[in-house]
Structure formats: C-alpha cells, structure tokens
C-alpha cells in the first residue's frame, strides 16, 4: 500500500505517494526522475548514491524512503544555483581535473559538500574520512582530494 510522505528536497517541499519498500534512491531516480544520483552497487559499498540528509552524507540506496518523512534532503541537483552557477565544490572538481568518467562524481561531491558545510577548512584526514566510502576507479583520488582542499583554501 502506498503512503503519502512529505519531505524537503533541495529546499523545496515535496509530497509523494511512496511504496514502503522503496529506497530513497529508487524514488529519486525512478519516481522523481532525478538521475543525477547514481547507483553503483546497491549495497552501500561504493557511495555513488550519496545524498545529504539533515546535513549528513548517507547512501541513498540503503535508505528506506519512509524515513525521509519530515527530513531535509539535498542531492547533486540541489547544488547548482538557480542562475546556473556551480557550487564552489562543483567548480573545484571541474577546475582541478577531479572528474574523469564522472559516474562516482555526484556522490563524491555530496560527501565533500557534507564535510565542507560542517568544516569549511578540513584537514587531509577529514577529507579522506569524508570520501572513504566513495569508490572511484578513474582518478586515483589524488585530484579529488586536491579539489576538496582547494575549496577550503587549503592548497
């Protein structure tokens, strides 16, 4: 039986009919057709589906949508300003060469964003902690770390 739930998505109140068995990722990608959030494994082992829920980075593939009720969720689609300007972390990923195939990047950026919102000038250790659950096969992570550091003015 579907149930009506309400939550905040990228600063907008949203109301959907949700099947209790759905994950948040399923709702984002299949119901709301917001495909910026990726599924890389479905088991919380790669981080491609990372979104920010009430300020914390979370794997949306393991998150029951029913728990979204009343919470505030930010996805990769929510970072760009209305005028099309990129969020500083997005711009940093572009400028520092942190993007290759790009499939891990939305999740990677959301993990980094959650960190930077909490800690504008993170240490190397904090940067690594923030993205330790985000697998990337292309970049060797080096330029991803550089990008996150550059936002904090840390380079």
């Amino acid at each position: 039986m579907k149930k009506e739930i309400t939550f905040t998505l990228n600063n907008e109140k949203i109301n959907i009919e949700a099947d209790p068995k759905w994950t948040l990722l399923y709702v984002l990608r299949e119901v709301l057709e917001m495909t910026g959030t990726k599924e890389g494994c479905g088991y919380g082992e790669c981080g491609a589906c990372t979104v920010i829920i009430d300020g914390q980075a979370v794997n949306s593939c393991l998150y029951p949508v029913m728990e979204a009720e009343g919470r505030s969720i930010v996805t990769i689609e929510g970072l760009m300003a209305k005028n099309g300007e990129l969020d500083p972390i997005q711009k940093a990923f572009v400028d520092e060469g942190a993007v290759q195939c790009g499939f891990c990047i939305p999740g990677m950026i959301m993990s980094a964003k959650a960190l930077l919102d909490r800690k504008p000038k993170p240490t190397d250790e904090e940067i690594k902690e923030s993205i330790e659950g985000n697998l990337c096969r292309c970049t060797g992570y080096v330029k991803i770390i550089d990008a996150i550091k550059s936002v904090g003015g840390g380079r």
Binding site: E33, V99, G102
Partner: peptide
C-alpha cells in the same frame, strides 16, 4: 595547458546521461 575537461560541468552537476539514466 591545464584546461578543465569540457564535459566536467555536466558530470559534476549530475546532468550527464549514462546508460543507466536513459529511458
């Protein structure tokens, strides 16, 4: 020159369409 990748903005905003995203 260290010129950013042309497709990076699309990928960094989640707008790139992968086969997973195609309907």
């Amino acid at each position: 020159k260290r010129i950013p990748k042309k497709d990076a903005p699309l990928k960094a905003t989640g707008q790139a369409v992968y086969i997973q995203d195609l309907k």
